[in-house]
């Protein structure tokens, strides 16, 4: 077995295990921590696929910023395992089964569909390097890039406006 294959299997195991942990843990803080671990595993996969830029960005943005935000909110609400509401087990079972069925459907579909796809090249190529990515980004995708900056602006303003503390006289309705 290849070092790559072993790495792949290990990283996949970590990813799936932590994902299950996110779903099944009682304490929301544990869920957040599991999710962070999942992101690390996925970044590992990115590196295996030689998408270095994305791997780093994944860590910085997702694990570093988004998850921290989640943590802040959870801690703000003072949630822990005592106050955690639970759906009744029938609904949970239904949810699990739905996910399982979806998995099976996609599985069976893709099994037959991927027989004719080209085999991936082993080894590294230059595709994921930041230099090449940057060139593609600023040559072909510069418009979405600019628009995404507007998107960020609007998200920031939106978040602030929504999260503002209201005056006492405003009505809820």
């Amino acid at each position: 077995m290849d070092i790559q294959q072993i790495l792949f299997i290990v990283l996949s195991a970590i990813a799936i295990g932590c994902a299950l942990g996110v779903v099944f843990s009682r304490n929301p803080i544990n869920s957040v921590l599991f999710l962070i671990l999942t992101f690390f595993a996925i970044s590992g996969h990115y590196i295996l696929l030689n998408a270095q830029f994305l791997a780093v960005v994944n860590i910085i943005v997702y694990a570093g910023a988004i998850m921290v935000l989640f943590l802040f909110v959870i801690m703000l609400m003072n949630l822990n395992s005592d106050t955690e509401p639970q759906k009744n087990w029938l609904v949970q079972l239904a949810g699990a089964i739905s996910g399982g069925i979806l998995f099976l459907v996609l599985l069976s579909a893709l099994v037959s569909a991927t027989k004719t796809l080209p085999v991936m090249e082993q080894g590294s190529n230059d595709l994921g390097l930041i230099k090449n990515l940057g060139k593609t980004l600023f040559r072909d995708y510069v418009l979405p890039f600019e628009i995404s900056s507007v998107l960020f602006l609007s998200a920031m303003i939106g978040a602030i406006v929504i999260g503002k503390k209201e005056d006492k006289f405003e009505d809820v309705h």
Partner: peptide, 14 residues
């Protein structure tokens, strides 16, 4: 929504 997705996938793919 998920159920619908499953259904659509199934119909579409199969």
């Amino acid at each position: 929504m998920v159920l619908g997705m499953i259904l659509l996938f199934a119909i579409g793919i199969f």
